[in-house]
Amino acid sequence: MTGGIGGGCRCGAVRYTLALDDLPLTYACHCTDCQTWSGSAFSQQAVVAEDAIAATGPITVFELTSPSGRISRQRMCEVCHTRIFNTNSARPGVAVIRAGTLDRSNELIVTAHIWARSKQPWLELPEGAPSWPEAPPPEEMAKALGSPR
């Protein structure tokens, strides 16, 4: 590995490095929670190993418990409230990075779309791109993201 992949929050108080050689592939989530939280039509995210993230700065954790009892831990900047990444008790050791926080987000490639049944009607998904009406089976998502998981 060279120097890793950098990223951070809007105000610059939080910085992180991903212990990766290349930018990760990303996916777009079109669920209504992501639309509401991002204030946009979808959120763009990357899946990485939790231990690949080295973060510094004032990070706060916001926990959400789903009806099934799964706990989502959202990490965000205490200053500007930018969401950086989250983990979920259903997927130990896995983190989901908010792709827009990566320094080189303009170079990212979206390879899959999830919760497409909730996508905005004006949004056309690329022909042939993997998409699922809701959450995909983990092995199919891993394949779409080029991951061995």
Rank of each mutant, 00 (worst) to 15 (best):
E134D: 13
A99Q: 03
S118Y: 14
I114H: 07
S105A: 08
S105F: 03
N106S: 04
E134M: 09
T111V: 02
V94K: 07
P133S: 14
L123F: 08
P130D: 02
G128S: 02
H113P: 09
P133C: 01
A95W: 02
T111H: 02
R117C: 15
A135Y: 10
A95V: 09
L125Y: 10
A129P: 02
I114V: 10
I109G: 03
R98A: 05
A99M: 04
D103Y: 11
P137K: 11
V110K: 07
P121Y: 04
V94E: 10
A116P: 05
S131L: 04
V110R: 13
I109V: 13
W122I: 08
A112H: 09
V110F: 04
P138H: 05
P126V: 15
A99N: 02
A116Y: 02
A116E: 13
P130L: 01
A116F: 12
G93W: 09
G128C: 02
E140R: 15
A135P: 12
V110I: 13
I114Y: 02
A135I: 14
I109W: 06
D103M: 07
I97L: 00
S131P: 01
L102H: 03
N106T: 04
R104F: 01
P137G: 04
P130N: 03
N106I: 03
E140T: 06
E107P: 12
P137D: 14
I97E: 00
N106W: 08
I109N: 05
A95D: 06
R117G: 09
P130K: 07
P138D: 15
I97Q: 00
L102N: 01
M141S: 09
L125T: 13
P130E: 05
P130Q: 01
E139Q: 15
V110M: 11
A112N: 08
G128D: 01
E140V: 14
E134W: 10
V96K: 04
V96Q: 08
N106Y: 01
P138R: 09
P121W: 07
E107S: 12
E139I: 14
R104W: 01
P137V: 15
P133D: 10
Q120R: 13
S118Q: 15
V96F: 11
W115L: 14
P136A: 07
A135G: 08
S118T: 15
E139L: 11
V94Y: 02
P136H: 08
P136R: 03
L108K: 05
R117S: 12
V96N: 05
P126S: 14
R98D: 00
A129H: 13
L102Q: 07
T101G: 00
R98G: 00
P137Y: 03
L108V: 10
D103L: 09
P138T: 10
A135D: 09
L102S: 11
P121N: 06
G128E: 01
K119G: 15
T101A: 00
E134R: 15
